[in-house]
Design a protein around this nucleic acid. Structure first.
Length: 431
RNA sequence: UCCGGAGUAGCUCAGUGGUAGAGCAGGUGGCUGUUAACCACUUGGUCGGGAGUUCAAAUCUCUCCUCCGGAGCCA
């Protein structure tokens, strides 16, 4: 008898198999009962019929509880009445461990309760589907990069100073040297990496000690940063668009079942695999102001403005060419207008906000130094970064993708905290 | 940090001054095709903590705590 996964039972119709997993639900009747069984690959209904099994097996109906671990054997049978199309006519049920009363019931729960029970919530169908989509998105991103000449280059997580602002860092004690900080982006290190590898990327956790309390923010999240030598602003956006469209296609191809479990509108998602819209920051301001907003040409886009901008759009929208004061010190100036930097944000539809931030980087030593002075940065700490502009500097560009936001948008879940196994937010570090 | 909301059974919630409630979960019984199964019965309460007003407080006032949503900042 073969031990099989639920996803493969279709290949075993008419045969006896062994399944190893957990009790997802139980429905008991007088002389028949149903064990809804899950094993991580899928869910199948197992039917236990009184006159087909030993009395001791039949009586397990009063022993088993929700989420008890069980090993079941029986005959796989095609069954149109059952979800998934197959059913198991049970021969034996062996309990591995009888679960205590399971805290997560069949009715709805509030977010606080579910997050406090995240270690158990992960087992529910939607959360399991979401984790599978996260897996696909993660791999699709790295597949695209690997197929396009990018080398994986792991940036450090413990860093001596900030990449961008200085108010959002987590501090950790670091021996005699005092303090170190958890990385908020590997970007600056990648700029060193491309001078060795041409194109490279990192993918790992980054940390922001921002006191953000919104459905788009976590204090620990996963970011992919990519960087490429001799790529300019336009080429940078082209890579970003191709990458995101590849991820969308891959998710639809590999996770149709999971997207259906999450009730994601797949046709709508499909429409996002089309040329993305591009507007300059200036055009974006004019547009949102015409829709009722009232912001100036040097302002950043707030949540409301982002929502207005993508409202009714099937595809994500690039906002490029930002006023320098709204963006980071390392972004390259536009040759035609020194008040503008060659940065781009990619705004996802459906309120997930910015899923990519990218830019062409300043490659001129003196201009970069000027900007750092303006920002009152500690030049000594960034000497190595300035060095990159002294030893064979080249035009180069890069961008960062927030994994959870991308997963959230593709999955259609409302809150980003569901897009990571154990979310870290300002008031929650357990479990 | 600011603005708004919430805290009542294990869970989700109703209850706006006069005997503490429902659904689900748990327990008992019934049911051979259930799909968040159903039916009957049933266990379960420091109404977030403290103080105050009142003959009387889950309900009104003050205060503290916890959580949620949003803003700012960002991916």
């Amino acid at each position: 008898m073969d031990t099989v996964s639920v996803k493969d039972v279709g290949q075993y119709a008419g045969k006896e198999v062994k399944l190893q997993g957990w009790v997802y639900n139980l429905r008991k009747s007088g002389k028949i009962w149903f064990l809804i069984f899950r094993d991580g690959t899928g869910i199948i209904q197992c039917t236990v019929i009184k006159n087909l099994v030993d009395p001791e097996i039949f009586e397990k109906k009063s022993l088993l509880t929700l989420e008890s671990s069980v090993i079941v054997t029986g005959i796989v049978r095609e069954e149109p009445r059952s979800v998934g199309g197959y059913e198991l006519t049970v021969k034996t049920v062996q309990e591995v461990q009888i679960a205590d009363e399971y805290p997560i019931g069949k009715k709805e729960h509030g977010p606080d309760f579910l997050l406090s029970n995240r270690h158990l919530w992960l087992r529910s169908a939607k959360q399991s589907a979401l984790l599978k989509i996260r897996h696909t998105v993660y791999y699709a991103i790295t597949e695209y990069l690997n197929n396009n000449g990018f080398y994986r280059f792991d940036s450090p997580i413990l860093t001596p100073s900030a990449c961008e602002g200085t108010t959002t860092l987590f501090e950790v004690p670091y021996f005699e040297q005092g303090k170190a900080y958890l990385s908020q982006s590997g970007q600056l290190y990648l700029e060193a990496g491309i001078m060795s590898l041409g194109k490279c990327y990192d993918f790992g956790p980054v940390f922001r000690a921002e006191k953000s309390k919104t459905r788009k923010h976590l204090t620990e999240f996963w970011m992919m940063d990519a960087e490429a030598a001799y790529v300019k602003h336009e080429g940078n956006m082209k890579i970003q668009e191709e990458l995101i469209r590849y991820v969308i296609r891959t998710a639809i191809e590999r996770n149709k079942t999971e997207l259906e479990i999450l009730e994601r509108d797949i046709d709508q998602l499909q429409k996002a695999d089309a040329p993305f819209k591009k507007v300059t920051h200036r055009e974006a301001i004019d547009y949102v102001n015409s829709k009722g907003a009232s912001i100036g040409y040097s302002d950043d886009l707030g949540t409301q403005e982002e929502d207005l901008l993508v409202e009714g759009s099937d595809v994500p929208v690039f906002v490029e060419k930002w006023p320098a004061e709204a963006k980071a010190f390392y972004m390259k100036r536009d040759e035609n207008d020194p008040s503008i930097v060659l940065g781009d944000d990619l705004i996802a539809p459906d309120g997930f906000g910015e899923i990519i931030g990218g830019s062409e980087r300043e490659d001129n030593h003196d201009m970069l130094l000027d900007r750092m002075h303006q920002e009152k940065m500690n030049i000594a700490e960034y000497q190595w970064y300035l060095d990159l502009r002294k030893y064979g500097s080249v035009p180069h560009s890069g961008f960062g993708i927030g994994l959870e936001r991308l997963v959230g948008w593709i999955s259609g879940v409302r809150h980003i905290r569901e897009a990571i196994p154990f979310p870290r937010t300002i008031y929650r570090i357990n479990p």
